[in-house]
Computed example of a mutant assay.
Amino acid sequence: MNTDLPRGFRAGTAAAGFKAPGRTDVGLIVSDRTAAMAALFTTNAFKAAPVQVSQEILAQYGTARAVLANSGQANACTGSEGLANCRETQRLVAEAVGLEPHEIVPLSTGVIGAQLKMDLWRAAIPELARSLGSDDAEAFTRAFMTTDAFPKFVTRQVHLSGGLVRLAGMAKGAGMICPNMATMLSVVLTDAAVSREAWQGMFARSVEKTFNRVSVDGDTSTNDTVLGLANGASGVSAASEQDARLLEDALAEVLGRLAYMLVKDGEGATKVMHISVCGAASDADAEQVARTVAHSQLVKTAIYGQDANWGRIVAAVGRSGVPIDPQAVRLTLCGIERFRDGQPVNDDMEEQLAELLKGKDIEVGIELGDGPGVYAVHASDLSHDYVSLNADYRS
């Protein structure tokens, strides 16, 4: 896969020792020019210091030149000291690379409640500044990984009327994923020229169709952020309606691929459930049913165990809080219909279904027979390893 950043962006990384000696844990991306900024943030009431600072940058300026991301320290629930430390990291990096502090958007991930190790920050920033120059998206992505099993990055090219533009998306996240505006940390860059307002609108719509439709464990982090910078370095504008649509489609494709990777890499995950609901009275009702099934621990563990226990899915539909007519509900699992007219069907296909459940991608289709509402969500299964990873997270 091509891991090059779009034109006008440079990346660098450093090993600060925030969590493990010798491992890159801080990354910096700098744009050669001011970029339009778009972002969405966690809805958790306990917003981490970098989230608060990033929100200020978006509201006051709407533009940025750099992204500063670290793992090993979330800087969440750290009060006024945490905010001051976050601003100090901006100041130190700005001084090292010739930017203004407000041009640097901070992102952090790690254990909640610990203050930043400022001595390590000060020691690492010279190395970080010296390393700038790479256009490798994967290297930056590795710098903000935590329990991720693999780096998540996607690159795309799209032909607009004025020429070719590039996009690169990077994300980290394997647990605490049930976003309500974003998901863990994600950065998307493009060298297209687009207005701040149009870019923010594209982000909001694309996140709603992608990151807002995944679930690993039902938790929403204090640090969730999805950030986009459009620096126009290609000289190609997405000002026309057609070009804006093409760019938004490419953005949604990038975010959709990243969202799938997040679920696939859910802590201890072995499978991805693709849950689609149709025939609801409204899209909102379809979403409520889909999310109830996606969050069900009994459904998740059954899928992990390759157990064709479709009754758990039906039970989750029935307790979703949406008015349900049991006689109208139809359920298909891996393309095989298993429930219709209030009773099981195709019992003779149990062995075939068990074989299909050995796959990595599991299709769950739910029809409610009550209207035009539809919704789809991707969810991981729940394995022994999820418990082990999270029980030992701080060890």
Results as ranks from 00 to 15, higher is better:
residue 108 S to P: 08
residue 347 D to R: 10
residue 179 P to I: 02
residue 127 E to K: 08
residue 322 V to E: 03
residue 100 E to F: 07
residue 238 A to C: 11
residue 363 E to M: 10
residue 132 L to W: 11
residue 363 E to R: 14
residue 53 V to C: 04
residue 346 N to S: 12
residue 184 M to F: 11
residue 173 G to A: 07
residue 333 L to T: 10
residue 135 D to Q: 11
residue 119 D to W: 03
residue 137 A to M: 06
residue 170 M to V: 12
residue 381 D to T: 11
residue 287 E to P: 08
residue 233 A to E: 01
residue 125 I to L: 08
residue 225 T to G: 05
residue 207 V to M: 01
residue 329 V to A: 07
residue 8 G to D: 01
residue 367 E to K: 05
residue 313 I to H: 00
residue 178 C to A: 13
residue 239 A to R: 00
residue 329 V to L: 09
residue 181 M to Y: 12
residue 264 K to D: 13
residue 172 K to H: 10
residue 182 A to H: 05
residue 282 S to R: 01
residue 227 L to V: 06
residue 316 A to N: 09
residue 96 A to R: 10
residue 125 I to V: 13
residue 149 A to H: 10
residue 24 T to G: 07
residue 188 V to Q: 00
residue 127 E to C: 08
residue 90 Q to A: 15
residue 368 L to I: 06
residue 53 V to W: 03
residue 186 S to E: 10
residue 234 S to Q: 00
residue 339 F to T: 13
residue 156 R to D: 03
residue 234 S to G: 00
residue 112 I to M: 04
residue 356 L to A: 09
residue 370 D to E: 14
residue 195 S to E: 14
residue 90 Q to I: 08
residue 100 E to L: 12
residue 180 N to G: 04
residue 202 M to C: 09
residue 188 V to K: 07
residue 255 L to Y: 11
residue 162 G to W: 00
residue 341 D to C: 05
residue 354 A to G: 14
residue 350 E to R: 15
residue 36 A to G: 01
residue 97 V to W: 14
residue 335 G to V: 11
residue 46 F to N: 01
residue 153 F to I: 07
residue 346 N to P: 06
residue 343 Q to D: 14
residue 195 S to Q: 13
residue 348 D to C: 13
residue 137 A to P: 02
residue 361 D to W: 08
residue 332 T to L: 11
residue 148 D to S: 14
residue 18 F to K: 02
residue 208 E to H: 09
residue 242 Q to V: 09
residue 103 E to L: 05
residue 335 G to Y: 05
residue 329 V to W: 10
residue 162 G to I: 00
residue 157 Q to W: 02
residue 74 A to C: 09
residue 64 A to P: 13
residue 251 L to T: 03
residue 23 R to S: 08
residue 83 L to E: 04
residue 208 E to S: 05
residue 164 L to V: 02
residue 226 V to K: 07
residue 203 F to S: 09
residue 121 W to P: 00
residue 280 A to I: 04
residue 149 A to W: 09
residue 347 D to L: 12
residue 333 L to A: 10
residue 35 A to H: 04
residue 348 D to S: 08
residue 99 L to Y: 13
residue 102 H to Q: 14
residue 81 E to Y: 10
residue 187 V to P: 01
residue 74 A to D: 03
residue 326 P to I: 07
residue 115 Q to F: 10
residue 23 R to K: 13
residue 283 D to M: 00
residue 115 Q to A: 02
residue 370 D to Y: 01
residue 54 S to D: 01
residue 286 A to D: 00
residue 36 A to F: 09
residue 259 A to N: 11
residue 268 G to N: 05
residue 146 T to P: 15
residue 39 A to C: 08
residue 240 S to T: 15
residue 151 P to V: 04
residue 214 V to Y: 04
residue 379 A to E: 03
residue 100 E to Q: 11
residue 195 S to R: 02
residue 302 A to F: 11
residue 36 A to P: 01
residue 175 G to Y: 04
residue 246 L to N: 06
residue 131 S to E: 12
residue 327 Q to K: 12
residue 182 A to N: 07
residue 341 D to G: 10
residue 385 D to Q: 14
residue 347 D to N: 11
residue 214 V to M: 12
residue 234 S to T: 00
residue 285 D to P: 06
residue 83 L to R: 00
residue 249 D to W: 06
residue 352 Q to W: 10
